[in-house]
Computed example of a mutant assay.
Amino acid sequence: MAKLAISRLHHPVTVLGHGVRAGVWVQGCTLACPGCMSRDTWEPRPDTEADVEAVLAWTRRLPGPLDGVTVSGGEPFQQPGPLAELLHGLRELPTDDGGTRDLLVFSGYAWPRLRDGASYGPALTLCDAVVAGPYVARRNTGSPLRGSDNQQVVPLTPLGRERYGPEALDRYGQRRLQVTADGGDLRVIGIPRRADLARWQAASEAGGVTWEGTTWTA
């Protein structure tokens, strides 16, 4: 069984794709896009490696409904073999309610590189849609599902086109953020607009919240 470096797992995720989802964030990214909100996922950390089966077992234990799984990071396609194994296992998971589950992967690689890269093919054939392209802070205009408007949302299956095609994206409306608490940590899930995080930090500090560090300046 392959091992995948994992930053975190979360359920439910309601802002990174269709419906109620499981979120898998991988650890490790060499792209280092300026302004990335997840700088804490850049550094490769062997101590975060987990058996793909353990991630699948976590997914099996989740309560329904589960409309899909979103994989982000970090850079998922820098672990193409384990990513393909994870996606294959997710494809095999039964759906208790008879619903349809989609697999959505976010990547900082441009779509032509993913499309033409032989090592990425096995994982791509298992995706319903991919959000592809590097994050460019000055082009963060609030586009649905895209951190910046140079990125592409590429549907790869009929289900992907139904949920992430142009007409579906038009229905997404404004971006939303999801905030969760884990002990003393606050986690922001979603795609913030430019300067949203700085404004949120300033407003919370004005309300008496003490910040010891942030992932986007890690």
Rank of each mutant, 00 (worst) to 15 (best):
Gly121Glu: 04
Arg101Ala: 12
Ser143Leu: 14
Trp25Ala: 01
Arg139Cys: 14
Gly165Gln: 09
Asp196Met: 10
Ala5Gly: 10
Phe77Ala: 01
Gly133Cys: 10
Arg139Gln: 15
Ala206Gly: 07
Leu31Phe: 09
Ala198Pro: 03
Leu83Pro: 01
Gly142Ala: 10
Gln201Trp: 05
Ser72Tyr: 02
Gly19Gln: 02
Asp67Cys: 13
Glu92Met: 15
Glu167Tyr: 05
Ala32His: 12
Ser204Trp: 13
Gly98Glu: 10
Tyr172Phe: 10
Ser7Thr: 03
Ala118Phe: 04
Pro65Asn: 13
Pro192Lys: 06
Glu212Val: 13
Asp40Cys: 10
Leu126Met: 07
Arg139Leu: 15
Thr157Ser: 15
Leu169Gly: 08
Leu16Ala: 00
Gln78His: 11
Pro158Trp: 04
Ala132Trp: 09
Gly108Tyr: 02
Ala202His: 11
Arg60Glu: 15
Gln79Val: 06
Val153Trp: 07
Ala168Met: 08
Gly108Ser: 13
Val179Gln: 03
Trp58Ala: 09
Trp200Val: 14
Asn150Tyr: 11
Val71Pro: 00
His88Asp: 12
Ala84Phe: 07
Leu186Pro: 03
Ala57Phe: 03
Glu205Arg: 08
Gly207Asn: 09
Asp182Thr: 07
Pro12Glu: 05
Glu162Gln: 14
Pro144Cys: 12
Pro134Ser: 11
Asp116His: 10
Ala22Gly: 01
Gly68Met: 14
Ala84Trp: 06
Asp67Met: 13
Val69Trp: 09
Thr217His: 13
Val130Lys: 06
Val154Ile: 15
Gly81Arg: 15
Gly64Lys: 09
Ser72Thr: 14
Gln201Tyr: 05
Asp102Val: 11
Val188Leu: 12
Leu83Glu: 05
Thr70Val: 13
Asp170Leu: 11
Asp170Arg: 14
Gln178His: 01
Asp149Phe: 10
Val105Ser: 04
Asp96Val: 10
Val154Leu: 10
Ser72Asp: 03
Leu66Gly: 06
Ile189Pro: 00
Leu104Glu: 04
Asp40Gln: 05
Pro76Val: 05
Leu197Tyr: 07
Arg187Tyr: 12
Ser38Ala: 11
Ser148Val: 12
Thr95Val: 15
Pro122His: 04
Cys36Arg: 01
Asp102Phe: 09
Asp97Gln: 13
Val105Cys: 07
Pro158Thr: 07
Arg163Pro: 07
Thr141Arg: 15
Trp200Phe: 14
Gly68His: 11
Gly213Thr: 12
Gly142Tyr: 06
Arg91Met: 11
Arg115Asp: 10
Gly133Arg: 10
Ser38Leu: 09
Gly19Ser: 02
Val15Ala: 00
Ala2Val: 03
Arg171Leu: 06
Leu126Trp: 07
